[in-house]
Design a protein around this nucleic acid. Sequence first.
DNA 1: AGAGATCATGAGGAACTTGTCAGGTTCCCC
DNA 2: GGGGAACCTGACAAGTTCCTCATGATCTCT
Lengths: 230, 230
Amino acid sequence: MCAHVLVAEDDRRQAEVLRRYLEAEGHATTVVHDGLTALAQARRQPPDLLVLDVMMPGLDGLNVCRTLRRESDVLVLMLTARATEDDLLRGLDLGADDYLTKPYSPRELMARIRTLLRRVRVTAPAAGPLVTVGRITVDPARHTVSAGGEPIDCTPGEFAILEAMARQPGRVFTRSQLLTRTRGLDRNSTERTIDVHVMNLRRKIEADPRRPQLLVTVYGVGYKLTGGAE
Amino acid sequence: MCAHVLVAEDDRRQAEVLRRYLEAEGHATTVVHDGLTALAQARRQPPDLLVLDVMMPGLDGLNVCRTLRRESDVLVLMLTARATEDDLLRGLDLGADDYLTKPYSPRELMARIRTLLRRVRVTAPAAGPLVTVGRITVDPARHTVSAGGEPIDCTPGEFAILEAMARQPGRVFTRSQLLTRTRGLDRNSTERTIDVHVMNLRRKIEADPRRPQLLVTVYGVGYKLTGGAE
DNA sequence: AGAGATCATGAGGAACTTGTCAGGTTCCCC
DNA sequence: GGGGAACCTGACAAGTTCCTCATGATCTCT
C-alpha cells in the first residue's frame, strides 16, 4: 500500500502536515510549492498520485491538471480554499479524480487517498495481506489456508468461516453471526449447519479433532479461534 | 459515455430525481428502494456504477457495499444524510469509491459520477514490460504470449484474461472481476463466458487441459493463475 | 447425581458449480 | 457483400459442496 505521492501546495506549513500524514501511511512523498515545479517533477518522475492545491503562484492547479491529463493518467486529488460549486465542477471535469475544499479533515483526505490508490492498485503485484492465528494462516487474496506451513484444502463455506474468525482471534462468534458473516444474509439455513462446517474444519486443522485446541467451542454461545496456547 | 447505473435509494422522490439526472446524461438507470433488492439486482445484472444510500430499510448501504465488494469491482458512490466523519471513513474504507453527504448538489454528484466512470474506462492501455508467471510470459506491449518459450496464439478475449491474471499471480479472480477488468464498461455477457475462455486458454497453455496446473479453478470463487509449483 | 439443554457426528439427498459442446450472432477485414 | 474469426448463450453432464436429520455424547446447573 505504499505509493509515491507528489504534493503541490503553496503553503509550506500545510505541505509539511500533508507530508507527515502521507509518510505515516508509508507513502514516499515529494513536496513542491508551485505549479511549474509540480509539472516538471510529475514529468520527470511520474507519481502514483498528485495532491494538487488549486491556488498556486505561477501556474495554478487547474492548469497543471489540464496539462498533465493530456499526457498521462496520473491520479489527481485537488484541494482548494475557494468552495464555489463552479470551481469544483471545473476541477472534476478537467480531470481531477477527487476534490476537497479547505479546511478539510486530514483523516478524510487520507481515506480518500486510500480509496483512489486502491482502485488503481489493481495492477500491483499480488502480495496480499495474510491473516494469521497461531499456526493457522489465511490468505484471502489467494484463497488458501495453511496450518504450520502445510497447505489445507477448504471448501468455500469452510474458508469463509475460518477467514471471519481469523480476522478477530479469540473473539467468540455466535452461529448466527457466522451465518450472516459468511453468507451475507443469503440463503436460509439452520445454525446447525455451522456445527457441521466447524467439525469438518477441525478435521483439517486440528491435531486431535476430538480435543480441539484452535477452533474451540464456547458452550452456550458459539465458537472462537485461538492460537492454541491460551 | 453511456453507462448502466443502479440507484439504491430509500426515498422515492429523491430516487426519481436521480433517475432523471442520470438519464439526461444518457445513462441507463435502474432504481431500487432497499438494500436486499439492490444486492440482488447488482448480482443479477452488474451495473457500471452503484449509487448507494446508506440509510435503507432491511440491509443498509454499508452492508451492501461490503458484501458486493467481496465479489466484484463495481464502482460505488455512497450517499448519506448523516454526516459524521466516522461514517464517511467507514464508507470509504469499506470500498466505496466516493462519498457525498446530503443535501448534495446534483451537479456535483453528476460531475463525480463522470469522474468515476472516466477513470474506469482508461484501464485498458496498461502496456509495459513483460509479465511472467511460471513458464507463461505475457507481453502487453506486443500483445503476445508464450509458454515455455513456445509462442501461443491468443484471441483478444483470451489475452485480456490472461494478462489480468498474470499481473497478480496467485490471486483469485471472480468471474465478475475478470469481466469488468477485461471489458471495461460495455459488458453485456454472462459470467459463463469467462468459463469458455478459460477452457480455451487451458487447451493452449496447459500440458493436460483436463488437469490444469496453471490456470486453476477455485471452487465457488473463480480462477487463479499460478506458477505451477504451488 | 440427574435433568435438560447444547453440541458432535455420520450419511444421504438436494442444491449448487463447473466443464464442455454446439449453434447462432456479431464484428471485422477483404 | 462475403468469408472468417471471435464471441455469446443455453443446455446438459459430472462433480462438489451444503443442508437436514437423527442419534449419541457432553456440558451446566440444581
